[in-house]
Design a protein around this nucleic acid. Structure first.
Length: 283
DNA sequence: TTAGGGTTAG
């Protein structure tokens, strides 16, 4: 047992209840002490006590993602392959999250996805949201995200959940695809997902970005619970269409205002200001 | 059950 391991044990374990090494690794991960956790893991390997607990690798991979340590993640990827744990869905999905959040190499991420033993709704949604996250200025990647969604829906027994709908509606909005957005909306209705503030805000945003303000407002009015994102999604639609007075009226009704809302309102004020400047120009 | 989600403009 190395020094780190001994130190760790003495600091965490009560006298008669010594936690397992796996437990210690999880504790280190929870405290974001990635380096120590990997060190401890490597000490197990060097003592030939090979661990095969999927939860351990899932948490280690998540800690790598959280601490932006792609290289440590790659090292763990090889452990995962050696131990045969890539068949575990939590390990597989944590691995996928590592690649799509920390690697800019889409081909590599795609390879990880293709190589997953079980592709569940989390794996598919990860790919969709991964494409959207990196695709901000790139329409082709939003397109790719939509393609993933529709392939997912064609699979037997695979159904989208709130996470999937939230992501795919964002892609529709950013592409300005009203027709596909409506298609997704109808799938959402049949899915039975109700009163999800994230999904409903994505709907408000999608309709707003597609220029369908009535629909955007209708979805917003039906929401039983709203937050600042819902409000900003609504404001954004009116702002994009140049309805600045409505934006300012709505702004006055808001109960909760954050920095993000201020961005929208400043844009609206700039629009009002632009109009008044033009009106003030002597003819 | 440890994993994946939404809003400025540039």
């Amino acid at each position: 047992m190395n020094l780190l391991l001994r130190r760790h044990h003495s600091s965490l374990a009560p006298f008669n209840l010594r936690p397992t090494i796996e437990h210690d690794i999880v504790s280190l991960c929870k405290s974001n002490l990635l380096f120590d956790a990997i060190h401890l893991l490597n000490s197990i390997h060097s003592h030939k006590c090979f661990t095969k607990k999927p939860i351990l690798y899932a948490i280690l991979l998540q800690t790598c993602t959280k601490s932006n340590s792609f290289n440590h993640g790659l090292q763990l990827h090889s452990h995962v392959i050696k131990t045969g744990l890539e068949t575990d869905r939590f390990v597989g999905n944590s691995l996928l999250a590592l690649y799509f959040k920390l690697s800019s190499d889409f081909i590599e991420t795609r390879r990880v996805f293709d190589g997953l033993y079980f592709k569940d709704v989390v794996s598919w949604t990860s790919m969709i949201s991964g494409f959207i996250r990196v695709g901000k200025p790139r329409n082709d990647l939003y397109q790719e995200a939509l393609g993933f969604f529709f392939s997912m829906m064609r699979k037997y027994g695979m159904s989208a959940d709130g996470f999937t709908f939230g992501s795919v509606l964002t892609a529709c909005g950013n592409l300005g695809r009203l027709k596909q957005g409506k298609e997704v909306h109808s799938k959402l209705i049949t899915s039975g997902i109700h009163d999800n503030v994230v999904v409903d805000s994505s709907l408000v945003d999608m309709y707003g970005k597609c220029g369908s303000l009535d629909e955007s407002q209708r979805v917003f009015d039906r929401m039983t619970k709203r937050n600042s994102v819902s409000w900003c999604a609504l404001l954004g639609g009116y702002c994009q269409k140049g309805h600045f007075d409505t934006v300012i009226d709505l702004f006055r009704q808001m109960e909760e205002i954050d920095l993000y809302s201020f961005g929208t309102i400043i844009r609206a004020c700039a629009g009002v200001f632009g109009i008044s400047v033009l009106a003030a120009v002597p003819t």
